[in-house]
Amino acid sequence: MAIKFKLGTRGSPLALTQANMVRDALCARHGWPVDAIERVVIRTTGDRVQDRALAEIGGKALWTKELDRALLDREIDASVHSMKDVETLRPEALVIAAMLPRADVRDRLIGADAIDALPHGAVVGTSSPRRRAQLLRLRPDLSIVLFRGNVDTRLAKLAAGEADATLLAAAGLDRLGRDTIGHAIPTDVMLPAPAQGAVGIEVRSADAAAQAIVGAIDDDVTSRCVRAERALLAALRADCQSPVAALASAAGATLSLRAELLAEDGSAFVDGHAEGLIGEAIAAGLAGDLLSRAPDPVRRLFGG
């Protein structure tokens, strides 16, 4: 069968694995052979620049702008994203048409059995403002150093002794067959990043055919939860420098949203939760409540 659908993806091992997951889901849903979908690898700025924090070189758009260009220029029909790496505000010409069922949302600690088990003054590698702030709130004695790169790069840095420990998303490790690496941190100890563990597929807003093709594999619960978490980010006017954690869950039609905002050094924080039927409304209400109660070192990091 001739190629009929082009799927854009970054070129990291995890991104390629996730693109294959989307391909397989589309083929299963539509009865297509595997060669009906062409995987198009697009290298992003975020993949090329590994020695600086995202906030210094353009934020989360570094993971998406090249994929966006390819999609808008019709070089691809859809693009695959790790949803936690997608900016909250997207171009109107693009739409997230589906999300795959969410994987494990937790972080995994590699280098120790638990955060409490890290030696005093241990060096932990991460590039995440959220993880940095949460670690320092729990363990102010820790030293945090910049770790960027794909899973193998960060594990290699750890093996080379550049840090005593690091944190990686459980979902990514599981998808790469590394499910025995590290120790999962309960969400009541470290709440995850908004949208962590979710894979999204984006298409052109005007491409009704692609929206129908991709929409057929959407996992409704994942979409509802992740959209609520992203709505919280929008209501907070958070960016890639904002230490924020959030996790939504669904019980029938009711959504429950938990969130935490932190000072950069973990010295102050505020948390809360809300429930309701409409994700955007829950997120807006929770954002207002958190900001109204947040200490100044936290509040000044939000609001745009």
Rank of each mutant, 00 (worst) to 15 (best):
K4E: 13
K4M: 13
F5N: 10
F5W: 12
F5Q: 13
P13G: 02
P13I: 01
P13N: 05
A15Q: 11
T17C: 09
Q18V: 00
N20Q: 12
R23M: 13
H30W: 10
G31F: 05
W32D: 07
D35F: 01
D35M: 00
R39P: 11
V40E: 04
G46I: 10
A55N: 06
E56Q: 12
G58M: 01
G58K: 01
G58R: 00
G58D: 01
G59C: 09
G59R: 06
K60P: 11
L62R: 11
L62Q: 10
E75P: 11
S79N: 15
S79G: 15
V80P: 05
H81T: 04
S82M: 08
K84G: 00
T88H: 08
L89I: 10
E92N: 03
A93C: 08
A98K: 05
P101A: 15
P101G: 15
R106S: 03
D107C: 08
D113R: 14
I115E: 01
V123A: 07
T126V: 15
T126N: 15
S127Y: 12
R130K: 13
Q134P: 13
L136G: 03
L136T: 10
V145I: 05
R148I: 13
V151D: 09
L158Q: 05
A160I: 00
A163M: 03
A165K: 03
L168N: 03
A170I: 06
A171K: 02
R175L: 14
R178N: 14
G182Y: 02
D188K: 07
V189M: 00
V189P: 01
P192I: 06
P194I: 12
Q196G: 14
V199S: 07
R204K: 08
A208E: 03
A209F: 05
A209N: 06
A210M: 07
G215L: 01
V226F: 03
R227G: 04
E229H: 12
A245D: 00
L247C: 12
L255Y: 06
R258L: 08
R258T: 13
L261K: 15
L262T: 14
E264D: 10
A268Y: 04
A268G: 06
D271R: 15
G272L: 08
H273Q: 15
I278P: 04
A283I: 08
A287M: 11
D289M: 03
L290P: 04
P297V: 13
V298R: 01
R299K: 15
L301H: 11
L301F: 04
